[in-house]
Design a protein around this nucleic acid. Structure first.
Lengths: 323, 323
DNA sequence: GCGCGCTATGTTAGCGTCAACACGAGGCGC
DNA sequence: GCGCCTCGTGTTGACGCTAACATAGCGCGC
């Protein structure tokens, strides 16, 4: 910076003003400084700036696992949105223990300006965790809470769409293959399912539960089949994939004997066999809203926001009329 | 830090020595300082340290997209390995343009100590890019190059395993559904395929090419079927999924009429229909080797390493004897 | 008992940046 | 013409940390 200042014949402070786009700089001076910066290949030193200003221009992302395709998609959306806002993104994975507090600890050590928590088991994002680290937070897919921003997909609405579609096809019973009990998204999808059933005057069966993996979907499907299910709403696409295999191996056909709907609209879903009817989540919108909420909070002290991103049903070939 | 020093009755420098595990500290003093640190909830300020030492303890990861399941798995492995070594990980996604230079630029701005480049189109990681940013680099799945560390999966070896398996089942022709031309991994898998064919004295057909997505696999499969393929080695699992669907829609059965092998052993592959025979990549090993190579380079000035991680064939139900 | 070397600790200075304040030059109202 | 404001710019110091050097105390050999 001193070199740039010397070359442009100004003080370091003026260089700083140019870098930070201060209006208090004569256009001609600005041009001179900019020329000097590019001649010298000057790059502001982030650590020094962070030391001075107390801001690192970095946000953290806490995610339990990237094995789930949905999480990966979200990560990408968040990374892109953060970059667009001029923030770096650092990713912290939860260990096997799923220790959210430890993750916050690590982020706080690093001095991020804020963090986004993905889809984490609800009860784990505790006030104590926040206090300890003192981080500004936006949580994705979590119950509304005034202590931090919340951005969610309209899981329940999406689930209702799926169930209504099946009912519209004449199914008189819709089984649900739910996600893990600790997940907010899973609970919401389950709620949408049972509400849609109630509205149609249909009884809800006990749900069968998986852990988001296709293997768990396959394992759970036998229980569903034993109950004579003709329509299954799975809480995500990967579990639906497991169901598809289980149905085929039981000698039944989809959608002739059993209709299946998923959730997420993962890239591969269109090439499942048969192509999967599913509820599409708008991951990109979710990611950019989350980043926007966080950055607005950091930069403008905006109060904790709450936003819901709508879904839509994508009908393919895994659903058909009831026999 | 000053507060900690005061409370422990020592100078700031001694606190620094305790934090940095210097041996030159009396055990009793150390204990006093540690007590003071924990009483006060002291946390070293990374930006200040970075300013002083010139190291940020942060590494960057450059990845084109996370839509591919393999990339996501790698990201997680890298994140965990970096955390274990005490480094933060910041992720940079390539824009639609795939501009590697811009990605390095962003990482250099952030002052990372080094970067890992995932599976990037070979020719894009150019010397010019490196020069500009002056970053220490480890590239995953790229041709050997002394300018940076390289860690790769044994793609060719894995491909040979797959082809040999098919030949062993009596197939007299093995078609290949290759990945994009720009990808090193794709080229290596293709090389393994053609070498295995040559060794068996079998002619290689022209490959059909996809872009790693299941949709491209589905589209490409019709050409393969038109040629009367009985055995297809797809360059990744997702494309294999597309092939599986195409075969079924053509009224043929896997593996009765056509055997299919994938590459990666993605979590879902075991629940494709039928469960997919595939080549397993050890993403965790790959990630931790890449991080180890990079961090050793940063901390110990170790020379650029070159490592190959072996694969193994996982036989499931998508392959069977030739008719 | 003197000097030497070793250990434990302190002191000083500066990493690159920006907030706060200072200052000179010019414009404006009366 | 005087005071006052605005604009463009410079000067100073501090953010929290650690490298380098300085110092004090102690044991040891002779």
């Amino acid at each position: 910076m001193a070199d740039v200042a010397a070359r442009a014949g100004v003080s370091g402070q003026t260089v700083s003003r140019v870098v930070n786009a201060s209006p208090r700089v004569d256009p001609e001076t600005r041009a001179r400084v900019e020329a000097a910066m590019s001649d010298l290949g000057y790059r502001p030193h982030r650590a020094a700036r962070a030391l001075r200003t107390g801001r690192t221009q970095t946000i953290g992302l806490v995610v339990s696992t990237l094995a789930s395709v949905g999480n990966s998609r979200m990560l990408q959306a968040v990374a892109d949105a953060a970059a667009a806002r001029g923030y770096a993104l650092t990713v912290v994975t939860l260990g096997a223990g799923g220790d959210v507090a430890a993750a916050f600890e690590r982020l706080a050590d690093q001095g991020v300006d804020g963090a986004i928590v993905l889809n984490e088991a609800t009860e784990r994002v505790r006030e104590s965790d926040l206090r300890g680290a003192g981080l500004r937070l936006v949580v994705v897919d979590s119950p509304r809470d005034d202590r931090f921003g919340v951005v969610e997909t309209d899981h329940a609405g999406g689930a209702r769409l799926a169930v209504a579609h099946l009912i519209g096809l004449g199914h008189r019973m819709v089984h649900h293959l739910a996600g893990p009990q600790t997940s907010f998204a899973a609970a919401e999808r389950e709620r949408g399912w049972s509400e849609a059933l109630a509205e149609a005057g249909m009884p809800a069966r006990a749900v069968v539960r998986g852990d988001w993996t296709s293997a768990s979907g396959f394992a759970a499907a036998s229980a569903l089949l034993a109950e004579g299910a003709t329509a299954v709403f799975a809480a995500n696409d990967q579990m639906a994939l497991g169901v598809l295999r289980a149905v085929a191996e039981a000698g039944r056909v989809v959608p002739g004997d059993v209709s299946v709907v998923g959730f997420d609209d993962v890239a591969d879903a269109a090439d499942y066999r048969p192509p999967l009817t599913t509820v599409r989540q708008d991951f990109d919108a979710l990611g950019s809203r989350a980043v926007a909420a966080l950055v607005d909070g950091i930069e403008a002290g905006a109060p904790a926001a709450f936003e819901t991103v709508p879904t839509r049903l994508v009908v393919r070939e895994s659903t058909g009329a009831a026999r």
